[in-house]
């Protein structure tokens, strides 16, 4: 062997090293990158399903209306008609699914305050008052009906 290809072993060694490097890269990549990565974009496609599988805590108004038609009826035409049930009653998916039979009622002393206590910045159209001045410590439901907010 002479001329250009005199020291071809060096080139072979380099090529071998290069090939080994690529092979190691491919193996590491195969181990590190999830199979569904890049299916829809630069992310793991399976993450969409995992995030969507999170359990629900708020059942939604439609679930309440399936059984509690009487309450829906009472609220018709009142100012609370469009307020969703779980705004005041809290998260009740466990009740809607049948796991909790009687979830109890909201505390009549505190349930109205978040929306109807006097607050700086609240729009003027929102009915609001100083609870202490208005009725002392008496719970609101002594006089008001929560589902159709009129005086009893």
């Amino acid at each position: 062997m002479s001329g250009k290809f005199r020291n071809y072993e060096h080139v072979l060694r380099m090529a071998g090293l290069f090939g080994a490097g690529i092979a190691i890269f491919l193996v590491v990549r195969w181990i590190m990158v999830p199979a569904d990565f890049g299916l829809y974009g630069f992310y793991r496609a399976g993450a969409l399903k995992e995030i969507a599988a999170q359990p629900i805590t708020y059942a939604g108004r439609d679930a309440c209306a399936e059984c509690h038609t009487d309450v829906i009826e009472v609220r018709k035409g009142t100012r609370h008609e469009k307020v969703n049930c779980e705004s005041c009653h809290g998260p009740l998916a466990t009740h809607a699914s049948g796991d909790v039979a009687n979830p109890g009622k909201p505390d009549p002393k505190t349930v109205c305050a978040p929306c109807h206590a006097k607050m700086t910045g609240r729009p003027k159209t929102q009915p609001q008052l100083d609870f202490k001045d208005h009725a002392g410590d008496a719970p609101c439901i002594d006089c008001h009906k929560p589902h159709s907010p009129k005086v009893k």
Binding site: L48, I51, A52, A53, Q54, P55, I56, T57, Y58, G60, R61, K82, V83, N84, E86, S87, C88, P91, C115, Q126
Partner: peptide, 23 residues
């Protein structure tokens, strides 16, 4: 925020919209 992705993919609205009393 996931925009309640687990809810909106099932036809529900988000938890914040569900409980907003004034819409």
């Amino acid at each position: 925020c996931t925009l309640c992705y687990h809810r909106i993919t099932k036809g529900l609205t988000t938890a914040c919209c569900e409980t907003c009393p004034t819409g």
